[in-house]
């Protein structure tokens, strides 16, 4: 008779459990604090924050100018600040310039506006190929750029965190700021997508 086994958790899950047990046992971390951190990034902070920043910049030229001049301060005007967004730089996509973000060394990402990075952003293939073959990567994401469009890759190796201000799509005249924000995707703020017209 075959006996049943419960598959053990993945290596990563085991490592996290071991680390958490040690931190708690040594009295360094309260388990409730970990729950609070997880709740923050599962339910409170995510790319809808960044979408609000983008929509504000689309409807308000003065705000857009401030955002491109001092990203950290302009983003804080909407209440977003803190860990992994202490020093923000916002870069603007234009008809002839497409920007793409990567962190080749690890997974640096602007948490207050975009939340935690997607798995592919942290994976070695994206990190290697975004710098060596950005047009190939973009094509796989469904973004095909004409030859006369310049691709600018931004590798965030230091303490600055970047966010792309995507182009406002056509056919959106007269839409409210909230309606515009609903069009903005996470990937458009990384540069692996454009914002589609409604």
């Amino acid at each position: 008779m075959a006996h049943r086994h419960t598959a053990p958790p993945s290596d990563t899950a085991l490592r996290v459990k071991a680390l958490e047990s040690l931190l708690v046992e040594k009295g360094l971390v309260d388990p409730k604090a970990l729950d609070e951190v997880i709740d923050t990034y599962e339910n409170k902070v995510g790319p809808r924050n960044g979408a609000k920043v983008v929509a504000r910049a689309w409807v308000n030229p003065d705000y857009k100018a401030r955002l491109l001049d001092d990203g950290t301060a302009a983003i804080a005007e909407l209440g977003f600040s803190g860990v992994q967004g202490e020093d923000m730089v916002v870069i603007e996509n234009k008809p002839k310039v497409h920007n793409l973000l990567v962190c080749t060394l690890c997974s640096c990402y602007p948490w207050p506006t975009l939340g935690l990075p997607p798995v592919w952003y942290k994976a070695a293939p994206y990190r290697a190929r975004a710098v060596s073959d950005p047009r190939g990567v973009l094509k796989e994401f469904g973004v095909t750029l004409a030859d006369d469009v310049e691709v600018r890759v931004w590798d965030s190796t230091a303490e600055l965190r970047y966010m792309v201000l995507p182009e406002r799509p056509g056919g959106t005249d007269g839409m409210s700021e909230a309606e515009l924000a609903a069009l903005v995707t996470r990937d458009a703020m990384i540069g692996t997508a454009k914002v589609a017209a409604p």
Partner: peptide
């Protein structure tokens, strides 16, 4: 591509 570039923090 002769048009493309990369910005990195140093």
């Amino acid at each position: 591509s002769e048009r493309d570039s990369l910005n990195i923090d140093m």
